[in-house]
């Protein structure tokens, strides 16, 4: 699904701009639901029982995955071809991941939050982090000679503008309703937030199902199944945005 790909204007891929516009529009849609009382209710900390250990599950899974990758474990299926197989040496990936994760944690970076906070209260703090990420991607692409300005022939990107827009519209809408973007959910799950951990599990399941149902997009474009999945996702997210309002929650609790 096109929603799974992050916009990449730092590499000169102008499809990223279409996607980014869709992302911002989706966040705007999410804000409309928030203004109308969208609320998933209060979270609370586990005070005792086995539940208080659940916050460590995400970290335990991450450590198991690192060990699995480092030892070429049989329980992992490694991609032999395609984008999944074209990765940096694991050591460099891990080091870069730790640095990026630490920075995202300390800055509380949230891609949907940056646009959301600007639209809501004109707060530009997270947009400045956006600027840093864009500058770093641009510098990296220029340094390695991979910068290529244009829409066509971009790595992994297709030029179906409507679906680039709608895919990221769905991402922005869902991220705003979930309280944070995929990056932020990942960081929060590492902080022991089990709500965020379930969001990450949902993303993994969604990615798996997309590939299984041939709904994942590629450079060739978005499949019919992918188009159906994006529209169905927007309908679902809209229904969730309408269904979970405070008035309804208050009645349910009374």
């Amino acid at each position: 699904m096109s929603a799974a790909r992050h916009p990449a204007p730092g590499g000169g891929d102008l499809n990223g701009i279409t996607g980014l516009a869709g992302f911002a529009a989706g966040i705007g849609g999410g804000i409309v639901f928030l203004r109308n009382g969208f609320n998933l209710g209060r979270s609370s900390a586990y005070k005792g029982g086995a539940g208080r250990f659940s916050g460590y599950l995400a970290v335990a899974a991450a450590i198991a995955l690192v060990i699995g990758v480092a030892t070429n474990a049989a329980w992992l299926n490694f991609s032999a071809k395609g984008p999944g197989s074209q990765h940096a040496p694991v050591f460099f990936s891990l080091t870069a991941g730790i640095v990026a994760g630490a920075l995202a944690w300390r800055t509380r970076m949230c891609l949907s939050g940056g646009i959301r906070d600007f639209l809501l209260v004109r707060d530009t703090y997270l947009l400045k982090v956006y600027a840093v990420i864009f500058a770093a991607a641009l510098a990296g692409n220029l340094a390695f000679g991979t910068f290529k300005l244009g829409f066509a022939g971009q790595p992994l990107a297709h030029t179906m503008h409507l679906w680039n827009f709608l895919g990221l519209f769905l991402t922005g809408l869902a991220a705003t309703l979930a309280g944070g973007c995929p990056l932020r959910q990942l960081i929060q799950s590492g902080e022991g937030n089990t709500d965020a951990m379930f969001t990450v599990l949902g993303m993994l399941a969604g990615a798996g199902i997309s590939h299984g149902l041939n709904a994942a997009a590629s450079a060739a474009g978005v499949t019919a199944a992918g188009q159906i999945a994006v529209v169905a996702g927007i309908v679902m997210a809209t229904m969730i945005g309408l269904a979970f309002r405070e008035t309804i929650i208050a009645q349910a609790e009374a």
Binding site: L34, R35, N39, L40, R42, S43, S44, C110, G113, R116, D117, L120, V121, A178, G179, G180, D195
Partner: peptide, 14 residues
């Protein structure tokens, strides 16, 4: 505003 996800605390305070 304890336990509410972002940005609901900010909207409610505002």
């Amino acid at each position: 505003l304890r336990g509410l996800s972002c940005p609901i605390p900010l909207i409610k305070a505002r």
